[in-house]
Amino acid sequence: MFAGFLAPYDYSAQSRSEPSAPATTIHFNSLTPIIHPRRVEDQLQRTYTEDTSVAFPVGFFVRGYSYKLLGIAETDVHLFGVRTTSGIAPKINLLGTDQLGRDRFSRLLYALRFSLVVTLIGVLFASLVGILIGGLSGYAGRFVDTFLMGATDAMLALPTLILILGVRAAFPLELPITRAALLLLLIFALTGWAEMARLTRGLVLSFRKREFVIAAVALGVSQTRVLFRHILPNILPSLRTRALLLLPTFLLAEVALSYLGVGLQEPEPSLGNMLTAASDLDQLRSQPFSVLSPALAVLFFTLGVRLIGRGERL
C-alpha cells in the first residue's frame, strides 16, 4: 500500500547508462550517511567504480517523483533518497539495478504490492466459492453431495499448475495490468476452491448432528438460516486457518506464471518476472543476493504465513 512512499524511484524509470549495476554502498561520514556517484568502468563487463571525490548525503523524507499516497493524496515525499541542491544526484540502488537500469529495490516493493493484493483477493474469492460449495454439499441431499464431492476430488487430484497453465492458454498472451490481475483472480477462484469445499463439507457434516443445530431445526428455523446463522459461525475459525494457508499457494502460482512469462508482463514489476533476471547467468554469478531478492521475499512470506498458521492451531 505504501510502495510509492517507500520506494525511492519509479518502477519503470530506466537509467540506461547504469545497467546491471551492483548495490550502492552507503558510507558514513561522521554519522551522516553518504553515497558516492559511480562511473562505468567497462561497458561490456559492466563494472563500476565509485568516485570518492564527491559525496552526496542520504536523507529521509526526500522529494522525488510524484505518486498518489493510498491512491488519493498526490505527493512527492519518499521515505529515503539522496539529498541534492543542484538537482542532479546519483541514484541510491539498495539492491542494484536490472539489465535496463531500473532500481531493483523500488521494483521489488511495487511487485510485492501487486502480488499481495492479488493473492489476498484471490483467497477471498476462492474461499467464498469453496465455502458455498462445501456448505451446499454438506447440507443438501445425498445426490448433490456425491456430485459435488466427485467434482472436488477430481479438482484436487489434478496438477494445479498444469491446470492453471491450461486455463491460461485460453487467453491472449499479452495483457494490461488490470486484465492480468482479473485473469489471475479468475484462475485462483477456479482452481483453489476445492480444498475449502472439502473442509467445509466435513465440518458442516459434523456440526449437523450437534444438539444446538438439531434444536434449531426442531424450532422450525429455515435451512438456509440454520446453515448461515448456526453452523457457519462455529466453523469459521477453522476455515480462516485453512484460508491463511492458501495464501502462499496463490502467491506461488502468481510467481510461477509471471516467471514463465504468462502472468504479469514487463514493464510492470512482479515477483515472478523480476526473477527471470536469474536467467542472465553472469549477473546471477556476480550478484546472487540482489538477483534472488524476490525469491527471498517469497520465502519470508511463506515461512511467515506457516508460522502464523501454526500459532493459530495451538
Binding site: R285, A295, V298
Partner: peptide, 22 residues
C-alpha cells in the same frame, strides 16, 4: 518439516541454479 514445507520449489530451483553457476 517446517523448512521443507515452506520453501517453495521455485526458490530452491533458483538457489540450485545460483550454486551451479558458482
Amino acid at each position: 518439516i517446517l523448512v521443507t514445507a515452506s520453501t517453495p520449489r521455485i526458490v530452491l530451483a533458483l538457489v540450485a541454479l545460483a550454486i551451479s553457476v558458482r
